[in-house]
Design a protein around this nucleic acid. Structure first.
Lengths: 364, 364
DNA sequence: GCAAGGAGTTCAAACGTTTGAATAGGGCAT
DNA sequence: ATGCCCTATTCAAACGTTTGAACTCCTTGC
């Protein structure tokens, strides 16, 4: 009955209610070491009263006093990009066994939000940060600020080891190569390539991988079959880009039997664009993507793609930060790490052996 | 230089560094009303020093003292379900203009996690809660606990007005009707129905809507064409269910020209299952979904579906809680609200007029 | 000469915990 | 009796803020 003005039940309320001091109550309820020499009858009474009054310790007071928040910030550039989800899942499962809890933040591809979240990370005294980066993340100085505060950071999707930040990336070069090799093995030679937007760091190495693999397979890439995705404003909407790219390719009228799309969403857009013109996938044209996101798996035909081990990466990222928290508590400093994840080709139904007849694209 | 043991710069550090009291520093940096009669030179010096030392106010100390956390908990049953994302987006944009920040929690369809997050909501003194519910949410008593603590709650996807909790749902009955009517208008009469899992509250009313609309259209539903989705363990994997349902339907050998799937993921599974048997969508068979999630929009053919205004619902939910926080601060109590969102049919390419020849399903 | 008021700053208490040190009352061996 | 340990409990300070009240100078008006 002795409700505080805050509306929440406090230790003091319980203390009053059952005639012990705040200390005793605290010791019992927080299961401090000292609680082993609190009389068991006392323990019982306090516990019962706490339950009855509906007590829940105030995380703010507790964290203030204990000087740690048990919180790990997870800052994603955009949760509506299906790419982020498996990463977040991986991180969450990695954090589960620890008693750190993830503080999920969604920057929604907005630079402003991204920065304000970074600020919040500092204010909320997150004990570590995992950043899922993309182009919005343009060397913000706040990250340095976080580093200065001795908060462990891991960044996924960017190599920031030069700034002393542990980083984790997919090996885009190998991945790009895999995609092209897969198409080559199926007999395709007239391959259209949809390159990623310039501001994405993945675009360049992926393209390099494609070129090398082409050279190795003895394929000359027709520059007129290479299109460049524009800057994507609307996050997940590589789809729109792929759709336009496909139309553009068809209009150009140069024949091709396969499209190597920058990522899965692009690939899905391409397939839509081809379908508009009556081009069937994979019968008339193969399409390959990259990432292996959910929409690619559930589409029919299933999209052949270069899979990123996103969940594993998330898991590993959480392991890294937990470890680093450990070593810093011991007063040391762990190594700055860099991990290049290996992609894996997942062959589904959107790619196939080149048609015998060498069927041409229907163009205007 | 006067770093505290916590590793973070505090007001005291700044006070020492520039020779003012902690109070003055606090007043300046928190822009309290009193700061208007702090000498501007003082203000300058303090601000400069704060910046230089890299000061960031401790959210824990601040919230403890101010007695509010500026935090609104958003508890989703599973972020990897594409259904949740637009809701979360809507909530986020609704919260943007306020200075409450969303604390995003992902229960990952795990009852245990769900409960522990609810606990955390209490401990972190969230000032309101928005729950995106599904079947994992089985009348947990913790929600009552939250209510008891006078924290405003809004639940999406469940009618909890009997428990005095504002609720928001899609009108499943109307939605189900819309789907069936759409198929009927296209001339379909042999319609297979895939009902939702029993433990989902949406299943029942949606099915009712379908039945009514069928009666109204003068269609008799063949019970042998009605299959029931099993309990979904793996969240978003209605896909698997749809796939199996399609196989089952084809095996049964009863002809049908359209499938009304419980939701989009199911529809995508159905399409895959039909494709396995060489049944083309929409030429040989129409398929309609429900929800309008991303994978349905980017698949080809685009899935015709009954759209839920998820983003708007999220937005509204955030408006509700903000309002309620307002009225409670004024000492009053707002109304318990209930909102039935109106679904909208989005016709895409997965449904079409029935084939003239009345082409039968290929079965075993 | 003095109250009134304002500008600039500081005091000190409070928010709800945790925890090292202290206390009180044993019992038990010397 | 004294000293000592043991059990059960409490004191009081601290975490980093915020804020109502107080304090010290000044100026200004009467």
């Amino acid at each position: 009955m002795a409700q505080q003005k805050s509306g929440h039940v406090t230790l003091l309320d319980i203390a009053h209610a059952c005639g012990y001091s705040v200390s005793t109550v605290s010791i019992v309820l927080s299961e401090a070491p000292l609680s082993k020499n609190v009389a068991s009858t006392t323990r019982e009474r306090i516990r019962k009263m706490a339950l009855q009054l509906g007590y829940h310790p105030d995380a703010y007071a507790r964290s203030l006093r204990r000087r740690h928040s048990q919180t790990i910030a997870v800052l994603a550039y955009d949760l509506s990009d299906p790419f982020c989800i498996p990463l977040v899942q991986g991180i969450q499962s990695g954090l589960q066994p620890s008693n750190y809890i993830p503080f999920l933040m969604d920057a929604q591809t907005r630079r402003k939000l991204f920065d304000s979240y970074l600020m919040m990370i500092l204010e909320r005294r997150a004990e570590a940060v995992i950043v899922i980066a993309s182009w919005i993340f343009e060397e913000t100085n706040l990250l340095a600020d976080i580093e200065k505060n001795k908060v462990p950071i891991v960044i996924i999707g960017r190599d920031l080891t030069p700034m002393n930040i542990s980083s984790m990336l997919i090996d885009n070069q190998i991945g790009g190569g895999m995609a092209l090799t897969h198409l080559a093995k199926l007999g395709h030679t007239k391959i259209a390539i949809i390159r990623g937007p310039e501001e994405l760091v993945d675009s360049e190495p992926r393209w390099n991988g494609v070129q090398h693999a082409a050279a190795e397979a003895g394929i000359v890439l027709d520059q007129r079959l290479v299109v460049q995705l524009p800057r994507l404003t609307d996050s997940a909407f590589g789809f729109e880009g792929g759709l336009r790219a496909a139309r553009q390719l068809l209009e150009a009228g140069r024949p091709f039997t396969a499209v190597l799309a920058f990522d899965d969403m692009t690939a899905l857009g391409v397939i839509r664009g081809l379908a508009e013109a009556g081009v069937r996938v994979p019968e008339d044209c193969s399409v390959i993507g990259f990432d292996d996101v959910l929409p690619a798996r559930v589409a029919t035909p299933g999209i052949t793609t270069v899979q990123q081990p996103l969940q594993e990466m998330g898991l590993l990222a959480s392991k890294w930060v937990l470890e680093e928290i450990g070593v810093r508590q011991a007063g040391n400093n762990g190594p700055i790490r860099l991990y290049h994840a290996l992609p894996k080709l997942v062959a589904r139904a959107s790619t196939g052996r080149i048609a015998r007849g060498g069927k041409k694209k229907s163009s205007a």
